[in-house]
Amino acid sequence: MNTTAASSLDAYSPLRLQSRSLTWQVAAVLLGTLFLAAMSYIEVPMLPVPMNMQTFGVAMVGALYGWRLGGITVIAWLIEAALGAPVLSGGAAGAIHFVGPTAGYLFAFPIVAGLVGWLAERGWNGSKPLLAFVAALAGNALCLAIGGAWLATSIGVDQALIYGVVPFLSGAALKSALGAAVLFVLHRATTKGAH
């Protein structure tokens, strides 16, 4: 990789984790899992899938950490959940959630973080808020598609769309806009400090 390409990858995120030591990166993964757990507790009860800030958190971790470290962080958080830590929606925990109606959404999360992180590394980040919004929206759409497809295996396609996809579309747009705004503010704050 040439120096220009490497520096552009390092500069995409205000956290610049790619240029930090392994210790910093491990600490970032641990902090990221705490952030994801906190986002899981902010929810609106709905059946069979609650609406919460998890997809916001997953997209933010991807955008700030990049596709590799973002994906690792989300997988670490899911492992914590499977081992019984109360880090899922509303404090849920246990391996049972990885075979129930929400399993498709859970398995989609590392893919979403990877997609948003990959796009962020290519300029779809806080320096270009419209592209950051589209990246987060693409991540949310992917999560709804995978989660809805899994849900359809147990309740049928029509019911999965009615209960597992359509109610979350407006929330996906709002969370994507919030994420793009946060990334823009972080980008402005870090570039101002660099001058």
Rank of each mutant, 00 (worst) to 15 (best):
A120V: 02
L115C: 09
T3F: 12
F184D: 12
A95Y: 13
A135C: 08
L137V: 02
G70Q: 02
W77I: 06
G100L: 01
V116I: 13
I155P: 00
T191M: 13
L17S: 10
A81R: 03
L36D: 07
S176A: 14
G84N: 08
G84Q: 07
I96M: 13
L169M: 14
R68P: 11
F109P: 04
K192W: 15
V61C: 10
L137F: 14
G70Y: 03
A76I: 12
G84R: 08
L88Y: 09
K128E: 11
Q18T: 15
H195F: 14
V74D: 04
T4G: 02
T33D: 03
W24Q: 11
P14Q: 01
A138F: 11
L178P: 02
A136M: 15
G91A: 05
I146M: 11
T55D: 02
K192C: 13
A28Q: 05
A63F: 06
I79H: 03
A85N: 02
S176P: 05
A181T: 13
I72F: 14
A141Q: 04
V29P: 08
A93F: 11
V49S: 00
V44E: 00
R188M: 14
L151E: 00
V185I: 15
E80H: 10
A152Q: 06
L69V: 09
K128M: 06
A138T: 09
L137G: 01
P101K: 11
S19F: 08
A113C: 04
A172K: 05
G156I: 14
A103G: 07
V134Y: 06
G91Y: 05
T33P: 09
G114H: 01
L9D: 09
A63P: 03
Q54Y: 06
L106P: 04
M51E: 02
A149L: 15
M39I: 06
W24G: 05
F107L: 15
D158V: 14
Y12D: 04
E80T: 06
R122Q: 13
G100T: 02
Y41N: 12
M60Y: 10
I146K: 00
A6E: 13
V185P: 05
L142I: 08
T4A: 12
A141Y: 07
F107N: 04
G171S: 07
A63R: 02
L178M: 13
I111C: 09
L47Y: 06
D158R: 11
A59H: 03
I75R: 03
I72N: 01
I155W: 00
G179I: 13
A38W: 11
A136K: 05
G139K: 05
A63Q: 09
I146F: 08
L178G: 10
G62C: 11
N2I: 08
P86G: 04
T73H: 07
G156H: 11
T33E: 08
Y105H: 10
V116D: 01
E43T: 14
R188I: 14
S176C: 06
V61G: 01
S13D: 03
I155H: 00
A113G: 03
I75K: 02
A103R: 05
K128N: 12
V87Y: 05
G66E: 00
T55C: 04
I75M: 14
K175T: 12
P129M: 09
G148E: 00
Y163E: 12
T153I: 10
A63D: 02
L88Q: 07
A149K: 07
A135M: 10
I42W: 05
V61W: 03
L169T: 11
I72C: 09
A136R: 04
F56H: 03
V157R: 11
A120D: 00
L47T: 11
A145H: 03
L151P: 01
